[in-house]
Amino acid sequence: MPIDGTITRRALLRAATCTAMSALAGPGLAEAAYPSRSVTWVLPFAVGGATGRLARPICERLSSRLGQPFIPENRPGAGGNVGTKSVVDAAPDGYTILATSTANAINVTFDPSLPFDAAHDLIHVATLARTPLLLLVSNELPVKTLAEFLAYAKANPGKLSVGSAGPGTVQHLSAELFRAMAGLEWTHVHYRGSGPGLVDLSSGHVHAMFDNIASSLELLQGGKIRALAVTTRDPSKLMPDLPPIWTVLPGFETSGFYGAAVPRGTPQEIVDLLNHEINLAIADPAIRKAFDEIGAIPITCSARDCGGVFAAEIVRWRQLIALSRASSNG
C-alpha cells in the first residue's frame, strides 16, 4: 500500500518540531523527566532517630507527588559520616539525597580530618525542622529533677556514664557543653545512632543521655526512662513542664537542625524541584501534625538561601564548641 503523502508531511513536521524543542531545551532536557526511577534518601544514623521520623513522611509525600519511590535508607556509622560520604561520592543526578543534620555542621569544625566538606561538597536543597533535645536519665539513677542530677553528678565524679549517638553529633556536643559548663566528670559512651544508646539507657547500662524527643518519646511514654530538662532556651510545646537547662546553666542552649542535600554538581533544575516539593510537603497539615508529635519546629527556605542557613549553623556550632573547650580548660 502506498504511503499517504499527508501523513508523511505530518510526521516530518512532528519530527522537526521535536528537534526544535530539543535545541531550545538544551542540556536541561534530560533533567525535565526527573525523577524517572526510584530515589534513595540516605539517613546517616541508625533506625529510630529524629532524622528518620522527619524524613519518612516527606519521602511518602514526594513519592505520591512525583510518581517515583523516594526510599529512606539507613546508613549509620561514624556519627553520620559514613552515610554523608556515600552521598558526597554519589552521582550528581538527584537520585541520591542526604538527610542532613546538625552533625554535618558540627563536623566541619569538630573533625577537620574528614575527607569531605559538607559545606562545599553538597548542595543544601531544603531545610526541614529544628528540634529541642532532652536530658534523659535511667530509671535506676536516683534523681528526678535537673537540680538533683547536677548534685548527684558533682557528688560522684567519674562514676556516671553518658551515652550519645556518636562522636561529633549534637547529642555528644550537648553533653560535652553541659559537662564543661557544670564542671562535671563522667565517662562518655558513643553509639552508632540514638536507638542503640537509648536501649542501653532504658536497661541501665548507661546513666544519662542527651537526645531528641522523636527518638526517646516511646520510651518516655512507656516509663522506661525519665526526662529532666530541655536544651532550648524556651520550654518544648510538647513537654511544657520540663525546665530549660538555661535556668540553671545560663548560656546553655542547643538544638537539632535537619535538612536535605544532594551531591555538588546536581543540576539546578533538580535542586529547585526538590526544594519546591519539600517545602510543599512541610506545609501539608498531615506532615505538620507528624512534626508536632515529636516536638519538631518546621522551617523552610528557598533553594538559594539553603546554603546560607547551613553556613550559619556551622558558625553557631563553631562558637559552641569553642565555649565547651574554654569551659573545660577553665
Rank of each mutant, 00 (worst) to 15 (best):
P250V: 07
L273I: 12
T84M: 15
I314R: 03
G166Y: 10
V82K: 12
N81V: 11
S203D: 10
V262L: 02
A11F: 00
F178N: 04
H172V: 06
E31M: 03
A20Q: 07
S38M: 13
G49M: 08
D93T: 10
R288T: 07
A283N: 14
T247C: 03
Q319F: 03
L141V: 14
N107P: 03
F45P: 04
I213A: 01
E185H: 11
R10L: 13
E140A: 11
A229W: 00
P196V: 08
D292P: 11
P132L: 15
R288H: 11
S138Q: 07
V206I: 15
A119F: 01
N74Y: 13
A180L: 00
D284R: 00
A165Q: 13
E313W: 02
T145G: 12
T247V: 03
P157I: 09
N74D: 11
A46S: 15
L136A: 06
P196F: 09
T8C: 05
L228S: 02
L274S: 08
A312R: 13
H124G: 07
A208E: 10
Y95F: 13
M209Y: 14
S101V: 14
D211K: 06
G222K: 14
V262T: 02
L323T: 02
D292L: 06
T247Y: 02
M181D: 06
F252S: 00
V248H: 07
R264M: 03
I297D: 11
G195L: 07
I314M: 01
G308W: 07
W246P: 05
N275V: 13
I213P: 01
A55N: 12
M209P: 04
N107M: 13
I321Y: 02
P2Y: 04
G28M: 07
G183A: 10
E176K: 11
P57A: 09
S22Q: 10
L273S: 07
D89C: 14
S113M: 12
I278C: 09
N279A: 04
T109N: 13
F70R: 06
G204Y: 10
G256V: 08
Y152D: 13
A260K: 05
P240W: 08
V248D: 03
P112T: 09
Y95N: 07
A261D: 00
A16S: 10
H124E: 11
I270E: 10
W246D: 13
K144F: 14
A11W: 03
A23L: 13
I71S: 11
R192I: 00
L13N: 03
N139M: 02
P35D: 01
S324D: 07
A16L: 14
G204N: 02
R316E: 00
L13D: 07
G94T: 05
G77H: 12
I3V: 15
T19I: 14
G49I: 00
V315Q: 10
A78E: 15
N107K: 15
D117Q: 12
W41F: 14
S194F: 09
I299N: 03
G94V: 08
T6V: 09
L43P: 00
P132E: 08
G94I: 02
R61V: 08
L249Y: 07
F310E: 04
G163C: 13
R65C: 11
K237S: 15
